[in-house]
């Protein structure tokens, strides 16, 4: 076996690692992109609880107003942080996916990583689409 082949076998394992990173980063990008919707859903649920109890929830539960305000503030700051973190997750995800495609295609052994290569491309495209979509929604 030539030293080039040995190097490629090592590099392919790095490709596998980058595939894992791109998978996790895509999931995190998806999650952070949907955080504003989760926040809106959370608010809707709280408002629904208030409406369904015709406001008596404020009397029935001690300090419901405080809980309402505090939890809304926490969710708001969480959403803000998630939206700040999203481009970083997306950037790392796309870079890892591209590296995974490049490195996995260097395989010298008979096993071909077709599924992983295709999935990496899907992850990269999906991540870019999520970022563009979330930017459009924000605008």
């Amino acid at each position: 076996m030539t030293s080039g082949d040995r190097l490629r076998i090592g590099v392919v394992r790095l490709g596998n690692i980058f595939f894992g990173i791109s998978l996790v980063c895509t999931i995190l990008t998806l999650f952070t992109a949907f955080t504003p919707f989760l926040f809106a859903l959370y608010l809707l649920v709280l408002i629904f609880i208030v409406l369904i109890t015709i406001g008596t929830i404020f009397v029935m539960v001690d300090d419901f107003g405080g809980f309402f305000t505090n939890s809304t503030e926490f969710m708001g700051s969480f959403t803000e942080t998630a939206l700040v973190a999203m481009p970083y997750f997306a950037g790392i995800g796309v870079a890892a996916a591209v590296l995974a495609v490049l490195l996995l295609s260097l395989e010298v052994r008979p096993k071909k990583h077709v599924a992983k290569i295709v999935l990496s491309v899907v992850f990269a495209v999906l991540t870019v689409a999520i970022v563009i979509f979330s930017r459009l929604v924000v605008q």
Binding site: G10, R13, L14, N16, I17, F18, G20, I21, V24
Partner: peptide
């Protein structure tokens, strides 16, 4: 050296799934 590179790149082995 290879194992060190894998360990670092895979974020302390977290993403080194096929090992």
């Amino acid at each position: 050296l290879w194992e060190f590179v894998f360990f670092v790149v895979s974020v302390f082995g977290i993403f080194d799934w096929g090992r």
